[in-house]
Design a protein around this nucleic acid. Structure first.
Lengths: 225, 225
DNA sequence: CGTAGGTTTGAGGTTGGTCAACAGGTGTGG
DNA sequence: CCACACCTGTTGACCAACCTCAAACCTACG
């Protein structure tokens, strides 16, 4: 992204505000007139079913547009929740429409960001369908480390993840009890330390092996788009 | 999509050809220079893991762009397989680049199609994580009926689905044996008939109830984009 | 007529869910 | 200050869902 493109985005992104932990950033079924950029904190997209079960379909870290797809989809097919206190800002769909009408390259980059979202979704589908829960959990940890390292939030192999185990279980589609037991096995094998919302990876080689983790899908490599 | 936009697309979509059932349409890890439109037949995106397990991450019906995301992602993070004999055509990324540089509205529509892909992925994640297998299977059937009805491929509550049960199992992340048993329960309850690749829905109300199916995510409603 | 691919069924074992209890930390009101 | 509720994490017991292995069956096709 060129500096002039960054300038264009900065001009249309407005209304910084804080959302408290647990607060709704976007509510399911709404038709927002703007899209939300997450400046700080963690957020999740989620759906809740009739019987009260909840599934988290995406996690967002600082720098992510949490609902750029709503610019095209119009109606939110899921909610977005603040997993920690979140600093957010918004870009009006009217302004995004202006950008897409006049700046083809910037449009491609915005499009790209929604396409990467899709790639992450596919990776999650594979993990949910065909990996063991242990592998799936390892994969999630690897993904979070990779994504957080881009924004400089990994220090000494450690990240801060403000999710309760119940929330992680809703990411993996697992019961809270079983998530806890799976987590114990990774701890017992000396692969990770996970205490008080701090996760430290002790053996990246082994962990990424268990997860069969290949970060290619996150598109971290630089190339012309 | 206006008729002039359709004309633009028609000019860049070339090279009709047939891919035999079971053939690769796009191979994992490749860097295609064009994107593929499925004109006729069924295709699947899939990944296979080290232990040989396969997960299908998306199904495609006639009219779908099967790998438009590769225009932006560059590298295919999964393969695309012909589930039946498929008639396909391709649009060179060079030409798509030309369209996106000059036609903002058409670009939005292409973008929209990748965003709908993402919405379907999320729906699958929810189904895999928090629905029973019976409900998940019912949901898949409902989705296929909805998508195929758009392209006029539902007749008398019946669709033709050229997938083996092993392939359906790879969609749901289920073993072949258990898929078969789950399928039996839907048959036994008089909800569907599924014989020789013909699926007939006998009780849409009950089936969509079990699936908690809400087609909103498919964006079937007409509105300005 | 034999083979291959797909479907169906049964048996037995593993994974993961539900229920229940307990521990530690925190905040609140008496 | 203590008693209490509440939230999160942890553990055990038991049960249901689902997997694997195995075999039988059916059809299409050489």
């Amino acid at each position: 992204m060129s500096s002039s493109e960054i300038g264009i985005l900065q001009r249309i992104i407005k209304n910084d505000r804080l959302v408290p932990k647990g607060g709704d950033i976007v509510v399911e079924g709404s038709r927002p007139a703007e899209s939300t950029l997450l400046l700080d904190g963690f957020a999740a997209r989620y759906r809740v079913l009739e019987d009260g079960k909840r599934q988290i379909t995406a996690l967002h870290v600082p720098g992510d547009f949490v609902d750029l797809h709503a610019f095209l989809l119009k109606t939110m097919d899921h909610g977005v929740l603040a997993l920690s206190e979140c600093k957010i800002a918004t870009a009006a769909h009217r302004d995004l429409g202006g950008v897409t009408a006049t700046n083809a390259h910037l449009t491609r980059l915005l499009w790209l960001s929604t396409v990467i979202d899709g790639a992450i979704h596919r990776e999650w589908i594979v993990a949910m369908g065909r990996r063991s829960k242990r592998s799936h959990l390892a994969h999630l940890i690897c993904e979070l480390f990779s994504r957080l390292s881009i924004v400089g939030m990994v220090e000494e192999n450690t990240i801060r993840l403000p999710l309760s185990q119940a929330e992680v279980a809703d990411v993996l589609g697992l019961s809270l009890v079983h998530l806890n037991k799976t987590l114990q096995t990774l701890r017992a094998d000396g692969l990770i330390r996970w205490v008080d919302h701090q996760i430290t990876v002790l053996d990246w080689g082994e962990l990424s092996q268990i997860a069969e983790f290949d970060p290619a899908y996150l598109c971290l490599n630089r190339e012309a788009r």
